[in-house]
Design a protein around this nucleic acid. Structure first.
Lengths: 201, 201
DNA sequence: TAAAAAATGACTGACCGTCGGTCAATTAAA
DNA sequence: TTTAATTGACCGACGGTCAGTCATTTTTTA
């Protein structure tokens, strides 16, 4: 035998070492050589651990997502009412803390739209399922607690998609600059409509 | 003087000649040489008319969008009620007729997310403004005709974004396969909530 | 036990084919 | 002849590969 490295750990190390340059320049504007240089390894070594730039992105997203999930979970536990919970959930699209993950998410979505690959789609589906299950639980709890009308169930998917749509618009156009305000207004207005005692804005 | 070519017309011709191959392979998987070959011109000539593949995409989108707008406009004139109008509007994301434009729109959005360029953003903003103004008019008409509560105004942007979000999810994951049904259910449920005589689903 | 030899996985950058983009040469209308 | 239009050979840069090097462990031997 010879030197045995922890491949899993080294993957993580390389990903974290290239984190700054990726977030700064964007994965599509970086060459493999530049990434390898930033990570302090040879170009050949890069290919020992990742088969493409996209795979590096997977690794980075997984690392940052883990931290993000813990943050969200902690905040959700302290939240009382449904609108508040939904806002915590949607925080991802505008708050400072999620900035890095959000930036990666943008690259991710862009790649998926441009060159659909099975692996990419599978990973996105996994992430989607994870967060959607979470979101459904929030809505269900709201209904059970009598905060929301049961009809809300028919809209869960759409509500989940709305913030994403607004985010994409704000990223690809010059409109929708104050995303936080837009989303909060939407949540409040919709929740008022869906509340069991019909208040209105 | 010598040969005088209608530059504008030739741009259109090249765009249309490369239409099939672009829709088939996707712009990111095509080389400039392949595009030029498909359009029956030399590579150098391509650069006489477009400074990049992205510019070719602009041209194609503009051509297809023109036809699409005419189709939508005609259908909107025949529509009576607000939910019906909104569905016609959202048809873009799933109907057969819009398939080619939708495919280009995907590429477009992907490029915007991956390498934000000023020109790209300006063009997307222009398209957004055009359709959003249209959408706002539908909502306003619904309110004026007493079909919708005035509070709908606060949600116009969000409703507009929802179908887009659902579309992105359906394209980047393996979920949300029956987009038409999902969107129709959403529109019907939301419209019922926003109707002045409070029916419910 | 020590130390030399063998074995092997980790690592590397020179190399190869391909692509985007340029430009000097060519064509053909006026 | 002049000039707009066209072209593909050419160039530098990139992604990806692979033969060779290095460092460490294992095995052999004195």
């Amino acid at each position: 035998m010879a030197i045995i490295v922890d491949k899993t750990q080294k993957r993580r190390d390389i990903a974290l070492a290239s984190r700054d340059i990726i977030l700064d320049k964007g994965i599509q504007n970086l060459t493999i050589s530049a990434i390898a240089r930033a990570a302090g390894i040879g170009k050949g070594t890069f290919y020992e651990y990742f088969k493409s730039k996209e795979e590096l992105l997977f690794e980075l997203v997984e690392i940052l997502m883990h931290a993000h999930n813990a943050r969200i979970e902690a905040r959700l536990e302290q939240a009382e009412h449904t609108p508040e919970k939904i806002k915590i959930f949607a925080d991802f699209f505008y708050d400072e803390e999620s900035g890095e993950l959000r930036e990666l998410y943008k690259m991710f979505t862009g790649i998926s739209l441009l060159s659909p690959q099975e692996e990419m789609k599978a990973f996105q589906t996994e992430c989607f399922d994870y967060y959607y299950a979470w979101f459904e639980k929030i809505i269900e709890a709201g209904i059970e607690r009598g905060e929301l009308k049961p009809v809300t169930r028919q809209m869960t998917g759409a509500i989940f998609a709305t913030a994403k749509g607004m985010f994409i618009i704000s990223e690809t156009t010059e409109r929708n600059r104050d995303l936080k305000h837009e989303i909060h207004t939407y949540v409040d207005t919709l929740m008022a409509l869906l509340a069991c005692e019909g208040e209105e804005a």
